[in-house]
Amino acid sequence: MLTKNMTVTEMSDSGKGLALIANLSAVDHDGDTYAPGAFAWKEQWAPLLTAHDRWGMPFGKARVYEEGDAAYAELHLNLDTAAGRDWHAALKFDLATGKSVQEWSYGYDVLDADLQFRGLEKIRMLKKLDIHEVSTVVRGAGQGTGTVSMKARNAALKEGRFDGLLGELGTMAEVLKGDPGLLSATGRKQLGDIHAAMGAALVLPPETGAEEKAAVNNAVAAELQRISRRHLKQA
């Protein structure tokens, strides 16, 4: 069994959340990337374990799925168990006290893969993964992974988390202002699809305040920018 990581950044009182476990088109620290469908070839649920201990009592479960260019684990901590309550308290403390240090990992078997080259770099394209479990760990191998939310999916997005991406969005906007043709046709189509999907998912109730609306708008813009950068043609 192999493992890769994801990092928890928020925890709700109900113990539910959404963790980003893989950016499919990125190359991680192990030199791996993913084909669409690598996680979604079947419905996958996995137990939540401590340090990949298969003999220990699970403290919850996770549903693994893909959406766009990412794979996610929908986490459900079992707060009816002592282990679930203990991990819930430990994670809330970790997130509320200084910089978060607790990481997560998922265990898997490779059912289908091949080797490819990107320029001079040899990478492994993972095409079909069987997810065994999701665990709390010290450090894992994933590239750019992290929990998107450990709250309800319609919870307010925090503007500060996207400061870096917003800065990059400004850079991309300046580049495209000079030459809009730098964005490929594939990039434009993907951005259109993502814009529509995210717009539908992020419709806010009428009573939403102006500050919260601004935070959501900034978050959407930042995520679109992050994805679109992969489609900027190299000079």
Rank of each mutant, 00 (worst) to 15 (best):
K4A: 08
N5I: 04
T9W: 01
E10T: 15
G15M: 08
I21V: 15
N23F: 03
V27E: 02
V27G: 01
G31A: 02
Y34F: 14
A35W: 01
A35Q: 04
K42M: 09
K42T: 14
Q44Y: 11
A46Y: 03
P47G: 14
L48N: 01
L49I: 07
H52R: 08
R63W: 14
Y65N: 04
E66N: 09
E67W: 15
A70H: 00
A73I: 01
E74V: 02
D80K: 05
T81S: 15
A82K: 13
R85S: 07
W87H: 01
S100N: 10
V110H: 00
D112L: 11
D114P: 03
L115T: 12
L115K: 12
L115C: 08
Q116C: 08
G146E: 07
S149W: 04
A155R: 13
A156T: 05
K158R: 12
R161V: 12
T171Y: 06
L176R: 10
P180K: 12
L182A: 09
L182C: 11
A185P: 04
G187T: 01
A200K: 12
P206L: 06
N217T: 14
A219N: 09
A221I: 07
A221N: 06
A222S: 04
I227V: 15
I227H: 04
L232T: 05
K233I: 15
